[in-house]
Design a protein around this nucleic acid. Structure first.
Length: 569
DNA sequence: CCCATGACGAG
DNA sequence: AGCTCGTCATGGGT
């Protein structure tokens, strides 16, 4: 029996209906009424809501301004336990009950309209589990969940799975349950980020776009004229030649005619030739402007920035191989020249907090390397590493990054060997991950997330397995345990900040892998800055764990600014 | 029409 | 030149 403080309160929302089970007491009815009661329950007791996913069950509460403080998200729990992205309730159920995922019934278009008599309807009319043991494909559709008994059965289903899932994660380790808590909170935070958006100074954004892409075109012909003028700045360096600058093959020929022979026309390949021929520099500048014109231009502004001058995209809490947050609409790759357009509203400022050198500090924590952990006590971790290796700081930095990314070539070679001798525990962990990648052996991050190596980056069946693929998988694994753990620490920190921020009148408006951007009232800015530091200390200590190894220090660079570009870089 | 590729943006 | 992501344009395959 779970202690009362750990009670899970399952909540389901299907179309216009909703239900939850609090201390065994059912509450079911219209979504409007049930969620109003849920909001009161949240205010009184902030229970831990168990949901199939935040996106399907908590969005209405979030949009009503009631972001649940604590939740258990079956989809996020599943991604930690089993890796991958797919995490629908039918799959979560199958895996937790030991059923083959291949047998999961697929929704048919006809299901929603099929009026044929269901032969099983008489036996267990309100059971979302079919006779084959699988969740009905239509269980979470309004067509099936059209009466109280079925909503309540779905709530019980979610509650049961959440309990089982928490036990399974507990078997992985105590930290895995903590990870599920903060990942669940991150999923709610994603809904809040989608609701609130990022404040944009629209006139400033228009001006910055104009500086790169020209004035807003009045017609298709006008757009073509502007494109032609932009192209001409490059083509004037190759008189008499015609080339489509948007076609890499033609660009390659164009450069060859100017005496610049390259295998590809990628930026880092061309960069050394900037001084060789003026057309190279002109082309690189053209590509910057072209990027803004095509991806971050007027269409982007019109489609992604709302009438309230907030930039909104879709957020995911744990996407990809290592479980990072992702965002669409350019929120994670806004070009630097456009960042001055991200501006706090009148009466507000941004508190921007960057985790400093997070990946090497995470490596120290997850490996438990005492010598490397000692280096984290410095504000600049690379300084003590450089002293120990007797090399320049820049060399030490390249060597540490090379070790984490699996770089083989370049200037890092000598220092890498010294790194191996100085920090054998940390480097050993990276080598173990690399070996697991080669062997297609799954790994778990520090926080317990499964990194699958049997499918990710695996060659197609029947394809000849070359060393290139194996090595790529090894590098992927080496990096995934660091990047994945860093993502977990970041979300634990973000969840803690989120918990405290509303009382100070602030919002989290952007999460960027190692950076938080908070929109807060001017008078609260100092308090929020202090909060950000304090929560990092608290959440990183909780995350590392007292008994796990040597103390590891995490640091944040915090600044109070009006525009995103004002912070020192 | 989808999909792979090349390119670039960010961390 | 090693890792991760999202987006756009091109061009080849349908």
């Amino acid at each position: 029996m779970v202690a009362p403080g750990n009670e899970l309160v399952p909540l389901v929302v299907v179309g216009e209906r909703a239900a939850y089970l609090h201390s065994g007491m059912p509450r079911v009815g219209s979504a409007r009424d049930v969620l109003a009661d849920a909001a009161r329950l949240e205010a009184d007791e902030h229970p831990r809501w168990a949901v199939a996913s935040a996106a399907t069950s908590l969005r209405a509460l979030v949009d009503a301004g009631v972001g649940p403080a604590r939740s258990w998200d079956l989809a996020e729990g599943h991604r930690i336990l089993h890796g991958g992205w797919a995490a629908g309730p039918g799959l979560v159920h199958a895996v937790l009950r030991g059923l083959a995922p291949e047998g999961i019934p697929q929704a048919r278009e006809a299901d929603l309209f099929d009026l044929a008599v269901d032969p099983l309807a008489d036996e267990h009319p309100d059971d979302p589990i079919g006779p084959d043991g699988y969740l009905r494909a239509d269980a979470f559709t309004p067509a099936w969940a059209d009466r109280d008994a079925r909503l309540l059965a779905l709530a019980a289903f979610v509650g049961d799975l959440a309990g089982i899932q928490r036990e399974r994660l507990g078997a992985v380790g105590a930290r895995a349950v903590a990870t599920a808590y903060s990942e669940s909170a991150a999923a709610v935070l994603c809904l809040e980020l989608e609701r609130d958006g990022l404040p944009i100074d629209r006139p400033r954004a228009e001006a910055l776009v104009a500086a790169a892409a020209g004035a807003r075109p009045t017609s298709e012909a006008d757009a073509a004229r502007i494109r032609g003028e932009r192209d001409a700045l490059v083509l004037r360096h190759a008189p008499g030649r015609r080339a489509d600058l948007r076609n890499p093959a033609q660009v390659k020929d164009l450069l060859a005619a100017a005496g610049v022979e390259v295998a590809t026309t990628r930026k880092w390949v061309l960069e050394p030739y900037r001084a060789t021929h003026p057309i190279v520099a002109a082309l690189l500048e053209w590509r910057k402007d072209e990027r803004i014109a095509t991806t971050y231009g007027y269409r982007w502004l019109d489609e992604q920035v709302g009438p309230d001058d907030r930039l909104r995209g879709a957020w995911t809490a744990s996407d990809g191989a290592a479980g990072r947050m992702t965002a669409s609409a350019g929120l994670h790759n806004l070009p630097v020249p456009l960042r001055p357009a991200v501006a706090a509203e009148p009466g507000f400022v941004f508190v921007r907090a960057d985790l400093g050198q997070i990946e090497p500090r995470v490596l120290a924590a997850v490996s438990g390397d005492a010598a490397f952990a000692e280096a984290t006590l410095a504000d600049d971790l690379y300084a003590p590493v450089a002293a120990k290796l007797r090399v320049e700081r820049s060399v030490a930095k390249i060597a540490v990054l090379a070790a984490m990314y699996g770089q083989r070539s370049g200037a890092a070679g000598e220092a890498l060997r010294d790194l191996q001798r100085a920090y054998p525990v940390a480097m050993g962990l990276l080598d173990e991950a690399y070996a697991a990648g080669l062997a297609r052996r799954p790994l778990r991050t520090f926080g317990g997330r499964l990194i699958r190596l049997d499918s990710a980056l695996a060659p197609e069946a029947g394809q000849v397995v070359g060393e290139g693929w194996d090595a790529a998988r090894g590098r992927f694994a080496r990096n995934a345990i660091i990047q994945g753990a860093a993502a977990e620490l970041f979300k634990a920190w973000a969840a803690t900040v989120r918990h405290h921020l509303p009382s100070l009148g602030g919002q989290i408006v952007l999460c960027l892998h190692d950076e938080l951007l908070l929109h807060v009232p001017v008078e609260a800015s100092e308090a929020v800055a202090a909060l950000v530091h304090q929560t990092l200390t608290d959440s990183s200590r909780r995350w590392v764990g007292a008994s796990a190894g040597p103390p590891v220090r995490f640091v944040a660079d915090v600044s109070i600014i009006n525009r995103w570009d004002e912070a020192k870089g």
